[in-house]
Amino acid sequence: MNPDFFVCPLNKKLIRTLRERSLVIKLDKIQDVGQAVALEKEFDFHIHCLQLETQTPLASIPFQNDWLDVPLAVYTPSLGNFFDFVEKLPLLRQINIRVYLPTNKKENYTNLQIISSLGITSALEFKKDYLDWELMTDLMTYALLPLVPHAPIDPFYYIANRYDPHKRNDYNSVYFNDFRFYLHLDHDGRVYFSHDDLKQGHYIADSIEELNNPEVEKELSKRYFRWTGFFLKTDGCAYCPGWRICLGKFSDTVKSIPGCSKFFSEFMDVIEQYKSIQRDKKEVWQP
């Protein structure tokens, strides 16, 4: 098993051991961005992305000119002051960034539209207890069938561009949570399939070196086919029209916050409409 990327904390001792790897480095302080960039120069690894999780609103983050070459995934609770945000736009538009806003604030559905309409790539961060499928539908439709040009909004744009109805479509990669591409490391170098596994301490290997161990391969296969569990129940996600792009991600909230089935079903319709617009785009004759 050899994933493309490892997601790890900013830990010099650990990062030193990850030579020639592509890393997503998790940061919880804005000022650590510079330190992570410095480490890349010191050690022989590649920054795939810096994942910054901050409580500072987007508009208040002190973006720097020397971040221009640093791929950033910024998880922030809100947009913040709009005028401060507008002031930062010229710099933000030059940075390789995706801004994640959570669903626990209803205004974020609109904020994502604002951010993307101003040219910044963004993504919705699903907070399981705070899901508004109506607002999500509006955002998804805005993301894929725009009346005005705007930057991508994920995971909608991500799925729409990779959608294959004859495959199980997974968008976890947008959140560094698809073990086919990303594995997570803790401070001691133990390896986890996902962010949730890391939080719960369920590791699959003591170190990267153990990843080719047949037991790990077996675990990987088990995890890959975890979806089959849905088909052993007599109701639930296996019976849902939206299964092929949702894959049961909201199975534990479907009863308390219903609406996911309708949403993902409409999402597929919109994706197919989006695809047909892309496919049938015609250039009008003109020299």
Binding site: R168, F231, W243, R244
Partner: peptide
């Protein structure tokens, strides 16, 4: 329709 979605979700191609 439950049967239909179940089967076409299980076997995508």
């Amino acid at each position: 329709l439950d049967v239909f979605f179940f089967l076409t979700n299980l076997l995508l191609t």
